[in-house]
């Protein structure tokens, strides 16, 4: 359309973008907004509006007499003193401290093994570890529920054949560990692929020299490879933090098998769900969900900060 306006710019060979013609520049800006607008509209409607609405709801309380009244921070005060909520958050904190290091540690070890180039059947191993990620969390929980089960679960069958007591996977003491196992099973491969990809982009020269100097494979892994993939480790850690605090599928499914072990507040998410849809305490549930989001933000931030600190120190 406006070819003639752009023509002079074409005469200079080097980077005409640096001094774009005014109308051209304006058209670009308009186009940019048009490209971003569809996403941003849906983003506003599906994330920003619900988020603010949730914050708004959390400031009210529905009463038997008098309808909905403004109560300020009362729901938050109640949540902080609510043993069900706090218990759930603490349980998830424990989950985080035990399961995430195991999962990411395994993922890192597998990624390093794949990257060392010393494996036979590389492709098979990589895919075999990754495939559980393609299994929906609900299906994984359901399947492991049967595997753990006392009747036809293989663990119980083997124990029975050996005359041993069957492992009480779904008991009070074991449940959290059993859930950790399901999550680990599902997500080691996903994290492994992220770390493996990061390892592959480490320039080889970095450690060829170290090898020439006689550093062994382990030493190279520890001093060169792991520091090089720190950004990817940080990313996987933060995703794991977010995922852990939102744990819902596994406990909700295993609840059917062990209703006495998994109570309504086993995880904060389960608690919010039960409050909203079983107890009809929407306002309180909104406050719980909001607080949970806050906890996730704080923990993610702390993780990021401590990673940066370490970066600076080294």
């Amino acid at each position: 359309m406006s070819t003639h306006t752009a023509a002079p710019a074409a005469l200079t060979d080097e980077a005409p973008a640096r001094r774009p013609h005014g109308s051209l520049r304006r058209r670009q800006v308009i186009a940019a907004y048009c490209f971003v607008a569809p996403f941003f509209l849906v983003f506003l409607a599906m994330i920003v509006v619900p988020l603010f609405y949730s914050g708004y709801l959390s400031l009210f309380r529905e009463q038997l007499v008098g309808g909905t009244v403004f109560v300020g921070m009362a729901n938050y005060v109640r949540a902080i003193g609510d043993p069900s909520f706090i218990g759930g958050v603490l349980r998830m904190a424990r989950f985080l401290l035990i399961q995430v290091p195991i999962m990411l540690g395994l993922a890192l070890v597998f990624a390093l093994a794949l990257d060392s180039g010393r494996l036979r059947l590389q492709r098979f191993i990589r895919l075999g570890i990754f495939i559980p990620y393609a299994v929906p969390g609900v299906i994984a929980a359901l399947m492991w529920g049967y595997l753990y089960g006392p009747d036809f679960g293989p663990f119980a069958q083997v124990a029975r054949a050996l005359g041993l007591p069957r492992p009480p996977f779904l008991s009070n003491d074991w449940m959290l560990g059993s859930i950790m196992n399901i999550v680990t099973w599902g997500f080691v491969g996903y994290n492994m692929i992220i770390l493996y990809a990061a390892l592959r982009s480490v320039p080889t020269e970095l450690y060829e020299a170290a090898r020439v100097d006689g550093a062994g494979e382990l030493r190279v892994a520890w001093s060169i490879k792991i520091p090089a993939v720190r950004p990817a480790l940080l990313l996987t850690t933060i995703f794991s933090v977010i995922g852990t605090f939102q744990l819902f599928n596994e406990p909700n499914l295993l609840r059917n098998l062990a209703p006495n072990v998994i109570g309504v507040g086993y995880t904060p998410n389960l608690y919010a769900y039960n409050l909203a849809f079983i107890n009809q305490e929407i306002n309180y549930a909104a406050a719980i969900a909001f607080l949970l989001g806050f906890v996730i933000m704080v923990v993610s931030y702390v993780v990021q900060l401590s990673a940066q600190r370490r970066e600076r120190r080294s």
């Binding site: 988020l51 819902f248 929407i282 949970l292």
Partner: peptide
Amino acid sequence: GAIMVPTTALAIPTYLL
């Protein structure tokens, strides 16, 4: 920033809306 927003914090108000 929205990547960190937990889905539950969204799902319940979205349901109401």
